[in-house]
Design a protein around this nucleic acid. Structure first.
Lengths: 215, 215
DNA sequence: CAATCAACTGACAAGTCTGTCGATTACTGC
DNA sequence: GCAGTAATCGACAGACTTGTCAGTTGATTG
């Protein structure tokens, strides 16, 4: 009831029945729920409650909980995937390519901070079943290639591209995954504020670029 | 039945009833289950099945699922906590202190690769409730202090100690968290083999030390 | 404006999971 | 070797969850 009723009232929209809007509402609520709890521990009841539509609509549009989960995974990743694939990094120097890649990656996750949590749950609970099938691994492959190029040309120090790619992804994404623990620091800053996200991006890029550069 | 029976047979032990051994067995199985599934999605039935003792023993020794969860958290963290607190880093240069800290941290998690997963279920699902109460945050505080000292003395470049501490932890721990996804890479290496763990530690330390050093 | 269809609902059947309890079996001290 | 106690088990009650279904309501169209 909550969101939909409010939206309709404030916008004075007549359309009470809108299949697409309802699906979008469910997907948004589901992304939150799955991000926090993962597939198994997520409750369809809770998702329905967040949207304000009846629980049965989940089954009407997405068949079952797993269908909804798949939809959320695809929807969450598509933006990141598209962005990284469109980067056109081949003509840049390894260092410039790396910076461009990291900027794009950090920008994506800053705008969709739930994504790393979802990835994490998929990795830990479902052993990355989805990634096995999907093309999501191509993100990391792009990074590995940059690093390979950089070590080959001598722009980067002698590092293992595979291991380093993992560690670099960790530097970028850990902030979002560890949020729940991090926020208990005395600091008491809002970790998802625009300023903090911006700072995190800058710090991560600086750390990584300095970390791979030849000494 | 499985493990216990086998152990007794091979060791020819008479003692079929051993409160401590049973608790240890349960804790070990629970650690695995909670690492993979988190508190809510973990199944007491599954834990019992792994141990070979009746499910009711969980309730006998740990009161309920949450009691067992708490016990697992405490047990899993104690080693890491003790190790990092005993390091005595004050008399070392920032760079040496950082290297010593990272070596200890990576050594700990390499010997207990489930720990990062548990930490992050706690962060994501339970919003770090446990860390709020426990002294686990002191690990990160240690790291922040090293970084503060390094920037103050000019040994490290101008970085934000808080943000960088998070990013550094990410570099060290992401490998273990992302395992489920990472393993689908063409490489096809065993990520938990001694050689790979050793390589990860070296690569992570190298990346971080290079990343913080003054240019 | 009536008929049709898609969107939507609430109640519920069936299954799963936790936590309890009485009964049973191994150890321990007398 | 007997009595008492601690450890263990299996079955089950009760709560919670998923997914279904028959029925209702709002839009659309000839």
């Amino acid at each position: 009831m909550a969101r939909r009723a409010k939206a309709e009232k404030s916008l004075n929209v007549k359309q009470v029945r809108d299949a697409e809007a309802t699906q979008a509402l469910i997907l948004a609520a589901a992304q939150e729920e799955f991000a926090q709890h993962g597939l198994t521990a997520a409750r369809t009841e809770a998702i329905a409650a967040k949207t304000g539509v009846a629980k049965s609509m989940i089954y009407y549009y997405f068949k079952d909980k797993e269908g909804l989960y798949q939809a959320v995974l695809e929807r969450s990743h598509s933006n990141l995937l598209q962005t990284t694939l469109q980067l056109d990094l081949a003509h840049l120097s390894p260092e410039a390519a790396l910076e461009k890649f990291l900027t794009a990656l950090l920008n994506c996750v800053s705008h969709n901070p739930k994504l790393p949590m979802i990835m994490f749950h998929e990795a830990v609970q479902n052993q990355g079943q989805y990634y096995k099938r999907s093309s999501s691994l191509s993100i990391d492959r792009t990074l590995v290639e940059i690093l390979e190029r950089g070590t080959a040309t001598g722009a980067f120090r002698q590092l293992d591209p595979f291991q380093s790619a993992i560690n670099i992804m960790g530097t970028c994404l850990f902030y979002f995954i560890g949020m729940g623990n991090i926020k208990h620091y005395p600091q008491g800053k809002r970790l998802l504020s625009k300023a903090m996200l911006e700072q995190h991006s800058q710090e991560a890029i600086a750390l990584i670029l300095a970390g791979v550069r030849k000494v």
